[in-house]
């Protein structure tokens, strides 16, 4: 019981995720700045931003639905934290696992986007509403390729459990190389999930101010931002566990270092893509996801099915 509590509250639960989420934000911002030949923020900047927001007043618009408006950030945070427990991080076994936790994890990672929609919708501000509708539209575009391309390695491993998948790929070295298309597709989908350039359409500040988050302020905004950071960590951990399943059999310290390196790698790729692209328009984004990303995800499934039929037998 006490260990469960320790897992949930401290490690690898809430506190660890907060710290790593803020570090990820710092690395992302610093890298983004350095890639743009700027100085970038000091290391404590994400923490300072968080503290500043927390110390400010929450303003709930008169027109907004106060309970929904207040509840949504908490939902987003809870969902993105819970997802981490089913992902094998630096060991073959995740903290908790059962057959089917893959679906639960993907489901949990979808909840934050839904909370952005609901939070934006119930703010009743025009900018928030447009942002909310946009994040939902975007969800339909990237969620299908993400699900498909995460399904493919699971098919190859013949299991619905992330931990068993990790065990399979640890036993069958170099099988991960077949899933590289899926890796690229899932990074693209993760960019969409985290609403980062080129898919920051729901938050496009020059069009709709801050989109969903326009009316949010103070603690509620701080929680939303924290949940976005944690979602980045959980999303990157999921991708690392599914597509980069090496170093899991190492002793704890070394395995942990490998895990951090994988996270850093994925975050760096996301920062780079945020630097070199312009923002898509909604129609372009949907077209891009259905026309180019989904077929690749489908191709990934085909590759895995063929390998499974020809090789593994």
């Amino acid at each position: 019981m006490l260990t469960d509590l320790f897992h949930i509250v401290i490690f690898p639960g809430f506190l660890f995720l907060c710290a790593s989420g803020m570090t990820a934000e710092y690395i992302d911002r610093k890298l983004y700045a350095r890639l743009q030949n700027r100085m970038g923020p000091p290391w404590f900047q994400p923490f300072a931003d968080f503290m500043k927001l927390v110390s400010k007043e929450d303003i709930v618009p008169d027109e907004a639905n106060p309970s929904m408006f207040r509840a949504m950030p908490i939902f987003a945070l809870t969902a993105s934290i819970t997802a981490i427990f089913y992902i094998p991080l630096w060991h073959v076994n995740a903290l908790y696992h059962f057959n089917g936790d893959l679906i639960v994890t993907i489901y949990l990672l979808t909840i934050p986007t839904l909370t952005y929609f609901l939070g934006g919708w119930y703010s009743t501000s025009l900018y928030s509403k447009i942002g909310a509708v946009r994040s939902l539209t975007q969800l339909f575009a990237y969620e299908v390729p993400l699900l498909m391309c995460i399904l493919a390695p699971a098919l190859l491993a013949n299991t619905w459990s992330l931990s068993e998948m990790a065990a399979f790929y640890t036993n069958h070295k170099w099988y991960w190389a077949f899933n590289m298309i899926g890796f690229v597709v899932s990074i693209i989908a993760l960019l969409g999930k985290l609403e980062k350039v080129p898919f920051d359409i729901p938050e496009a500040e020059t069009e709709i101010v801050a989109g969903t988050f326009t009316e949010y302020s103070g603690r509620l905004l701080a929680i939303f931002r924290l949940s976005l950071n944690i979602e980045a960590i959980t999303g990157a951990s999921l991708i690392a566990a599914v597509y980069l399943p090496f170093g899991l059999e190492l002793p704890t310290a070394a395995g942990f270092a490998v895990y951090l390196a994988k996270l850093l790698f994925i975050i760096a790729i996301m920062s780079l893509s945020r630097t070199v692209f312009a923002r898509f328009r909604m129609d372009q984004m949907v077209e891009f996801c259905w026309k180019y990303v989904s077929p690749f995800a489908f191709l990934q499934i085909l590759i895995c099915l063929i390998i499974k039929g020809v090789w593994v037998r």
Partner: peptide
């Protein structure tokens, strides 16, 4: 811009 962007990673910041 990817080439330029990666180059500036090793340049002194302009700011």
């Amino acid at each position: 811009m990817i080439k330029q962007v990666l180059q500036s990673l090793f340049m002194k910041p302009a700011t």
